[in-house]
């Protein structure tokens, strides 16, 4: 709407003898324009000069752009591009005999024979589980001497028994002393202050007892 009003105003101005605006000059260059505007151009040197400037600018724009494009695209490059388009089009149309790898789809259902032969897998798993449980129970009975505590699980009862065993206690103390000795002599001087702040395992063990 604004364009329309502006065009009407410009044409009115041209009809009155006023100079044409750039918008109208461009429209004239594009093949538009009213007869009154063309008549104005015939007699107005100023508008003619501006029109020539605008034309020269657009010509220069096109000339430089075309030269740039021609430098970038040699005939050989364009021919190679056409061949590539032809190849891709024939591939799309399925005319080049190219091998097409199928896109991975959902898994196909297995044949019935595989389903029938699967029963022994379940049986083998059940047998393995039974044998494993039996061996584990037998092994736990040998190590702990208890019937209810499985191997590797320390209950309150057997922990008390182990703590009360003087031989095992001496072995543990020996191990902790060795650990303390190693920890008491840090090899990295920078970590020495941090080591000083850390509570000793022996102190913790004494507190617990």
């Amino acid at each position: 709407m604004t364009e329309l009003l502006s065009g009407v105003r410009d044409r009115f101005r041209a009809a009155r003898g006023g100079h044409l605006r750039d918008r109208r000059l461009l429209a004239l260059l594009q093949g538009g324009g009213a007869p009154g505007e063309r008549a104005h151009l015939e007699g107005c040197a100023d508008c003619g000069e501006r029109l020539a400037e605008l034309r020269a600018f657009l010509d220069g724009l096109r000339r430089e752009a075309e030269a740039d494009c021609e430098a970038a695209f040699s005939p050989a490059r364009l021919a190679a591009g056409r061949r590539q388009v032809g190849r891709r089009v024939r591939r799309a149309a399925g005319r080049d005999g190219a091998r097409v790898l199928p896109f991975p789809g959902p898994a196909q259902p297995r044949p019935a024979v595989a389903a029938r032969s699967r029963w022994w897998l379940g049986a083998a798993a059940a047998a393995g589980l039974f044998i494993g449980l039996a061996v584990g129970r037998f092994d736990a009975g040998l190590d702990l001497g208890g019937a209810d505590a499985p191997a590797g699980i320390v209950t309150a009862g057997n922990a008390t028994e182990r703590a009360a065993d003087p031989e095992s206690h001496a072995g543990d103390e020996l191990f902790l002393e060795e650990l303390e000795r190693v920890l008491a002599s840090p090899n990295i001087p920078v970590l020495a202050p941090l080591d000083e702040l850390t509570p000793r395992l022996a102190e913790v063990a004494v507190d617990v007892r």
Partner: peptide, 8 residues
């Protein structure tokens, strides 16, 4: 850009 412009 306008060097090559045609004479008026």
């Amino acid at each position: 850009l306008v060097e090559g412009r045609a004479p008026r």
